[in-house]
Nucleic acid binder design. Structure first.
Lengths: 265, 265
DNA sequence: CGCCACGTTGAGACCGGTCAAACCACGTGG
DNA sequence: CCACGTGGTTTGACCGGTCTCAACGTGGCG
């Protein structure tokens, strides 16, 4: 887990004097004008450092809590490495994994409106989180509109992603939901330029099931069926390592399961 | 529908010279410091007008499309009156109602990141939409951080609301989901200071079912059961008018259905 | 080794989907 | 005025996908 957490990444920022290349378009729009779904990648860390923002860096491990529902909202958190889940809890005690977050994602947007976080953020893996005070971040963004643009884009992506989850939850069968879950995971890796033929599910079956609105047994069965259909393959050691020879086969699998009377296999 | 759309509301803004009361707290935080879940209410329209932002006002009616998925993103839209649904469509044609929006909500946040809208926004009722160019809005917000704060709070609320939907979708039975749907609707009215003992569902059973991840028949059955349990009552004319004597009975109903082996009635 | 958490697989029950019929409100046109 | 068609809603009967419960397998660790 967490390849290449170089020691250099742990020392403090506040270096590299500002040298933002001028852009022809409005500064609060994304500087490099990438494709519609591409991930901003590495420009954000550089920008944060250029602004001289006081970041607090923190190494986290599996199970570490980054913030809890109800904690006073003061910071936004940039996930610099690792994987984090966000868990919502209703007043009557129901728990629900509502999001998975990868490198480059921001955490804590849901706390802005209510002045306190609305869910728990828990690390699923070794990783690193950069925390910035929200008010200093906004103060800096007022001087550097491109930073504001990146923030807005991140919030916008979060909203779009939540909607995609709802679509998946409401319109797909349990098996298809699992396939779609894998597809989304692969997509997240792809956008970050990581290898996509093999993924490590750092959640238990129970967590996956909770996220997808089904039981852990159904998740297990769905994965077994996908494996039997040769869409995925379990790596030799441990059933949390999944090989995905062709990611597009997952999509085909989902579409096939939409036709009535068609199971995965 | 749409009570009190005074003629005065249709004439153009750009009046009332700025006279923002100074606040003791940072300007990008919400000016009036209300409770954690209160709706900003009417301060936003005033602020938009103070900034002299060029708004385009548009009256909409049931079925009118405000924007479509794939349309180029240029504007954010403030729903000044009426009710709007947002509908996501997957590449393979599945449609999903992913949000309901009431007076004071912003529409179009999901278009910021990808430069085009990610879903359709369709009016469910007579109403009025104010459209502002996103870039002019941001330019204005850089001069008036309290406007930026309101925007961020709106995005934050949207994210929190989506998560609440996921929680409801994944953890509640069909009947409880319908009860929770009504509860949320009442809550939305409450936050806007409207009467909550009677609501008009301006969606068909099919739309409600789609939104809640169930069939229209199940919605109908759930409503019938709630009526039989005296938690709701259908008004004499039309089955889209629902009286809710005690909104808290809905919550009790949801909790009761969590205990195993307990249906609504 | 035993223990424990996690994962898999099977059998049966049940919730909610599917299909079908009937009802209702509303508008149109004879 | 009523006949008719239409779209939305309700209700019932049946079926199937998931959940529930249970047993078993597996890998890690003291």
């Amino acid at each position: 887990m967490l390849q290449a957490l170089a020691p250099a990444a742990v020392q403090h920022p506040c270096s590299s004097p500002s040298a933002a290349g001028s852009t022809t378009e409005a500064p609060w729009q994304r500087g490099s004008a990438p494709g519609p779904q591409e991930h901003p990648g590495t420009e954000l860390p550089r920008l944060l450092q250029q602004c001289g923002l006081p970041l607090r860096r923190r190494l986290v491990h599996d199970g570490d809590v980054i913030y809890r529902s109800g904690d006073a909202f003061t910071d936004l958190h940039l996930l610099h490495a690792g994987i984090v889940k966000t868990v919502a809890t209703s007043s009557d005690g129901r728990e629900q994994v509502v999001g998975l977050h990868f490198k480059g994602d921001w955490l804590g947007f849901d706390g802005i409106a209510g002045r306190c976080y609305g869910c728990d953020a828990v690390a699923l893996d070794t990783g690193e989180v950069w925390s910035v005070r929200y008010d200093t971040l906004i103060a800096a963004a007022l001087d550097r509109p491109e930073l504001l643009g990146l923030l807005h884009a991140a919030m916008s992506r979060e909203i779009a992603r939540d909607r995609a989850s709802m679509l998946s939850l409401c319109t797909l069968s349990a098996d298809a939901r699992v396939a779609d879950f894998l597809r989304q995971w692969v997509e997240a890796l792809e956008q970050r330029g990581l290898r996509t033929d093999r993924i490590t599910l750092c959640l238990s079956r129970a967590e996956i099931g909770n996220y997808l609105g089904m039981t852990l047994e159904s998740v297990s069965r769905a994965l077994s069926r996908l494996a039997k259909a040769r869409v995925i393959r379990f790596a030799e050691k441990g059933r949390r390592h999944v090989e995905i020879p062709d990611p597009r086969a997952l999509g085909a699998c989902i579409e096939r399961s939409l036709e009535p009377g068609t199971a995965v296999q």
